[in-house]
């Protein structure tokens, strides 16, 4: 499988000097789903901003075989879409259709092509009848789905999703995960940022763990990573707490299975 994303020695500092990313390096293959997990403020969203060329750090970024630079930024953005954590940032037009068609229009597609791609994207996220709806009047779950449609309409090969299930109720989260499964089955490369390890368990081929010093500390098969409790505990992805099973009160870290030793 060809390489979709390659990042080498990427470091980013915010204008005030705070480190956003510290010597980040990883690779993602085409068609692969990589979930990046890390506690709050570990630089996951900053990494996405760097991959999209919004922020410019020091290091090497390669997208679909081309080095990311100002010359080919537009071409790379044609192939890679990003879905923001807060859908209100992504849905800036007055109607859902205007938002979904914004990307294809700016890509210079013809009117019929734009309409067909937008309708297809809306159908894919189950919002067929929402074309004329105002974005502000949608529920949070609907906004999240509309936000993904705004990117799907451009038919990108790579999708970056920033905290896709945060703030969603279980049913909306489940709908969203189904959309991710569909995208995965279509061969899209998915890069998902989350601190929800259950989402990682559901969808990931590989998991990349970010430590609190903004540096990737582990990458590998989701089973190996998610069963490494020491690693998860050390990187603030699970926590120890006291709890009670009948008469037994004891302390242990959260585990993914329902049963554990007392």
């Amino acid at each position: 499988m060809a390489r979709a994303i390659k990042v080498l020695n990427l470091t980013y500092r915010y204008p005030d000097g705070t480190i956003g990313l510290n010597d980040v390096g990883f690779e993602v293959k085409e068609g692969e789903t990589m979930v990046i997990i890390g506690a709050n403020g570990t630089g996951k969203s900053t990494l996405f901003m760097n991959l999209m060329g919004i922020l410019e750090g020091d290091g090497y970024i390669e997208i679909l075989g081309s080095k990311l630079n100002n010359m080919n930024l537009k071409n790379i953005r044609r192939e890679m879409g990003m879905i923001f954590q807060n859908p209100d940032d992504q849905l800036f037009c007055t109607t859902v259709m205007d938002d979904v068609s914004f990307g294809p229009i700016n890509l210079g597609w013809g009117k019929n092509e734009v309409i067909a791609a937008s309708q297809k994207a809306l159908a894919m996220v189950g919002l067929e009848d929402y074309e004329t709806r105002t974005s502000h009047h949608l529920s949070f779950g609907e906004k999240k789905r509309a936000a993904i449609a705004t990117v799907l309409s451009m038919n990108p090969k790579i999708l970056l999703l920033d905290e896709p299930t945060s703030g969603l109720d279980p049913r909306s989260a489940s709908k969203f995960i189904n959309i991710l499964y569909t995208l995965k089955s279509q061969g899209k490369t998915l890069l998902i940022v989350t601190h929800d390890i259950f989402l990682a368990q559901e969808i990931a081929d590989r998991v990349l763990v970010f430590s609190e010093d903004k540096h990737p500390v582990a990458v590998g098969n989701y089973k190996d990573i998610l069963n490494n409790y020491d690693l998860l505990l050390k990187n603030n992805l699970i926590h120890e707490h006291r709890h009670r099973h009948a008469d037994v009160v004891h302390e242990h870290e959260h585990q993914h299975g329902h049963s554990h030793k007392h």
Partner: peptide, 11 residues
């Protein structure tokens, strides 16, 4: 953030 979302989509 909105402006970033716009330029990502070719604005």
């Amino acid at each position: 953030r909105v402006y970033s979302a716009m330029i990502i989509r070719g604005f």
